[in-house]
Simulated assay, not measured.
Amino acid sequence: MTDSTSLRIAILVYEACTGSQVFGITDVLRIGMDLGLDIKARKGPAFDIELIGLAGKSIKIAGGISVGIKRPAGKYDLLIVPGLEINRHVDWDKRLASLSRELAFIKKTFAAGTAVASACVGAFLLGEAGLLNGRKSTTAWLFAPELARRYPATRLQADAVFLEDGAVMTTGAVSSSFDLAIQLVKRTLGAEVATATARVALLSNQRASQSPFVDSALMERGLPAFSQQLQLWFSERLADEYDLNRLALTFHISPSTLLRRIKVETGQSPLDMLQLARVEKAKQLLSNTTWSIARITAEVGYSDVSSFSRLFTRLVGETPARYRRR
């Protein structure tokens, strides 16, 4: 029997969804509940967690593993949508079309007043259901450009680990489902229990950015051809001053068309792309050379170390010196 104050959470289990997110979130919440009983002296669990699905009593998730599920029943406080098993060459139209029942359920549940959270590329299901329109969102950094292309009405923040906009929450790549769980523990049981939960589970409760983990080579291979050309052009001219008109002239299009096309393909501006390219080069030099930060700053086109350090910290989530040490 749960407390009347328990948060009723449903995790939507569907074909080929990612088990680590389904069970990882559940496990962290259960650790939080156990610690909450001690630290907060609760008399009952803080979360009532159900694995729900829309077909039968079991379903095969990623890896062909069968998981027992319940049919949805009653009103939930929160619906969590895990990510799904995909690769960079996935046919999103076909994959999402196969989840039409789940998409309709997400949309209906949200309209009925239930908050909705996605883990990793579960954000694509939220986008397809229309929940990201006009809202901030994030997803796995590798698939962020595709999310921006498919759902241009969302305000994508590709580097974020966890975002909340109204009753919609989204998270970054695979392990950020743990960040979602820690956030739920924090708001339900308090910061002390959340910190203890993170320590017991060997998790960080302060991750703010995916940027330290981004592999620019993987990102570039996943971009449309035009954006790849622009990325290559920038990589060969990192020290050049940014000039939108010159850039547009080089690619034989107008500045407005260039801005619009890059926004559609990547969710960024050309200047964003250049800044990221400069920071990625700096990351390589910090890791692979003993050059001073001043020399690295000049190498990637900046004359002021402080200004570049602020940019680096904003995009990476830590200073150049700390990145080098780590």
Rank of each mutant, 00 (worst) to 15 (best):
I80T: 07
V81C: 03
P82G: 02
G83Y: 01
I86T: 03
H89S: 13
V90M: 10
L99E: 08
E102L: 11
E102A: 10
F105H: 14
K107W: 12
K108P: 02
F110K: 09
F110P: 03
A117Y: 03
S118Y: 06
S118I: 02
C120S: 08
L125S: 10
G127N: 07
G127M: 09
E128Q: 12
G130C: 06
G134T: 11
S137P: 07
S137L: 03
A140V: 02
A140Y: 09
A140P: 01
A140C: 14
W141L: 05
W141Q: 02
W141V: 01
L147W: 10
R150A: 11
R150W: 09
R150M: 13
Y151H: 11
T154F: 07
L156G: 00
L156W: 05
Q157L: 15
A158Q: 08
A160D: 05
F162D: 01
E164N: 13
D165R: 07
A167I: 00
A167L: 11
A167Y: 03
V168W: 12
T171I: 00
A173G: 14
V174E: 01
S175P: 06
S176K: 06
S177R: 02
D179L: 02
L180H: 07
L180V: 11
K186E: 15
L189Y: 04
L189F: 06
G190K: 09
A196Y: 05
T197H: 03
T197M: 08
A198I: 08
A198M: 05
S204N: 11
S204D: 14
N205E: 13
N205F: 06
N205H: 09
N205Y: 03
Q206G: 03
R207P: 01
S211F: 10
S211H: 08
S216E: 15
S216D: 15
S216F: 14
A217P: 00
L218K: 10
M219Q: 14
E220G: 04
